[in-house]
C-alpha cells in the first residue's frame, strides 16, 4: 500500500530560484514576481506541476526567477508553446508571461487565438506602454504623442486597450491589477488560476527607465482610493476615500459616469452592481480611463465555458471508446490484394 504523501504547504520563498534577478532596480516586475510567488503559495501550487512560459522582452525573463518548470521562448509566440504544452499534458498548470509589445504587437495574432480558443492558461500581460529591452521605443499601448527614440516628434500610432482586445477576442476571464498593489494582485491571480480556460490579466507595470510614472495619476498611494476602483462581484461599484463615489450607467449617453453619493439626489440604488458574467458591462468597464474615471481593477469579467484542451482531450477519449487502435489494421484499411 502506498504511504499517504504528506504535502507540505509551500511559502512564497519556496518559489524563488537561485538566479540573480536582472531587471532594473525599481522595476515594477519585482513586485509582480512577489505577487505571483504569493499567489502560488496561497493556492497550494506544486512547483513540479507548474510551468511558466514567456516570449521575449523584459517581462519574459520572468520564468528564470520562479522555481517551477519554465520555458523562455521566442518573441510573441508564447501562446503557441503554452497551447502545445497544455494539449500534451492538460494536468499541468500553465502560466504565460508577456508584455504589451510581445503580446499585442508581434504576438497579437496568437493572443487573439489563444483567447478565442479558451486554452486553460493564466495569461499575465505586463503593460508598461513601452519597449524596454530594446531601449525605449513606443509600443502598441503607448499614448499618442509619446516621444521615444523611434518617435522623436511624438508617436502618431493609435493605442490599443489590452482588456478591450481580450474581451473582443472572446476571453472568458478578464482582470486587471497594478504591480505594486500587493494586497489585491495575488487575489486576482488566484482567481485567474482557479478559472478553467484562458484567464487574461493585464498588470499595469511601471518602467522606471523608459516610461517612469506613466500610470502615476492613479497609482499614487496617497490618492489611490479616489483614482482606483476594485471590483467585487455582486457589489456596488463604489469607491473613494470617503466611499462616496460610484459608477452609474447614464442611459442618455449610453456610457458610464462617475457620480457622488448624496449629490443631485444620487443614492446607492443608482450605483451599478458588478456582475462578472455581464460582457456588455465588462466592455464599458474596460474602456473607461483615468483621469476622467478611476482605474478599474480586479476581476472585470468571468464567465467560464469549456476549455480548448479539455474539448480536445474529451474528443480523443470519445473516439478511443468506439475505435480500437490497431496499427496493422490501419495499414490494411481500404483496398488490399495478396501476392502469393
Amino acid at each position: 500500500m502506498n504511504k499517504p504523501v504528506e504535502i507540505t504547504k509551500l511559502s512564497p520563498k519556496d518559489f524563488e530560484t537561485d538566479q540573480e534577478v536582472r531587471w532594473c532596480p525599481g522595476c515594477g516586475d519585482y513586485a509582480i514576481l512577489k505577487g505571483v510567488q504569493m499567489a502560488l503559495a496561497n493556492t497550494g501550487a506544486r512547483p513540479e506541476n507548474t510551468v511558466f512560459v514567456s516570449g521575449i522582452g523584459c517581462s519574459s525573463r520572468f520564468p528564470y526567477y520562479i522555481s517551477t518548470y519554465g520555458f523562455h521562448t521566442i518573441h510573441g509566440r508564447a501562446p503557441g508553446f503554452a497551447t502545445g504544452i497544455k494539449l500534451t499534458n492538460p494536468d499541468l498548470d500553465v502560466w504565460l508571461v508577456t508584455g504589451d509589445g510581445d503580446g499585442l504587437s508581434i504576438g497579437g495574432n496568437h493572443m487573439l487565438h489563444v483567447l478565442r480558443r479558451n486554452v486553460d492558461l493564466q495569461i499575465m500581460l505586463f503593460n508598461n506602454e513601452i519597449y524596454g529591452l530594446t531601449k525605449g521605443q513606443y509600443s502598441p499601448t503607448s499614448r499618442p504623442g509619446l516621444k521615444t527614440p523611434s518617435s522623436p516628434y511624438g508617436s502618431v500610432d493609435a493605442p490599443l486597450s489590452p482588456c478591450v482586445f481580450a474581451l473582443g477576442a472572446g476571453a472568458r476571464f478578464v482582470a486587471r491589477g497594478i504591480d505594486t498593489s500587493l494586497k489585491e494582485l495575488p487575489i486576482t491571480l488566484a482567481r485567474a488560476k482557479e478559472h478553467k480556460g484562458a484567464s487574461f490579466v493585464e498588470i499595469y507595470q511601471n518602467c522606471i527607465v523608459y516610461n517612469d510614472n506613466v500610470f502615476g495619476e492613479f497609482t499614487e498611494k496617497k490618492t489611490a482610493q479616489d483614482t482606483q476602483i476594485h471590483l467585487k462581484d455582486g457589489e456596488r461599484m463604489i469607491f473613494g476615500k470617503d466611499i462616496k463615489k460610484g459608477l452609474r450607467f447614464n442611459q442618455d449617453k449610453f456610457a458610464l459616469e462617475v457620480v457622488i453619493l448624496g449629490e443631485n439626489g444620487i443614492t446607492e440604488d443608482d450605483i451599478l452592481i458588478h456582475d462578472e458574467k455581464n460582457r456588455h458591462m465588462a466592455f464599458m468597464l474596460c474602456e473607461i480611463e483615468a483621469p476622467e474615471y478611476p482605474a478599474v481593477c480586479g476581476v472585470i469579467y468571468c464567465n467560464p465555458s469549456e476549455s480548448y484542451d479539455h474539448s480536445v482531450t474529451a474528443q480523443i477519449e470519445k473516439v478511443k471508446e468506439t475505435k480500437k487502435a490497431d496499427f496493422n489494421a490501419l495499414l490494411r484499411s481500404g483496398r488490399t490484394w495478396i501476392v502469393d
Binding site: 512560459v53 520555458f71 503557441g80 508553446f81 497551447t83 502545445g84 504544452i85 494539449l87 500534451t88
Partner: peptide
Amino acid sequence: CAAIGASF
C-alpha cells in the same frame, strides 16, 4: 511553437 511546446 505548439509542436515544440509538446516536446517540452
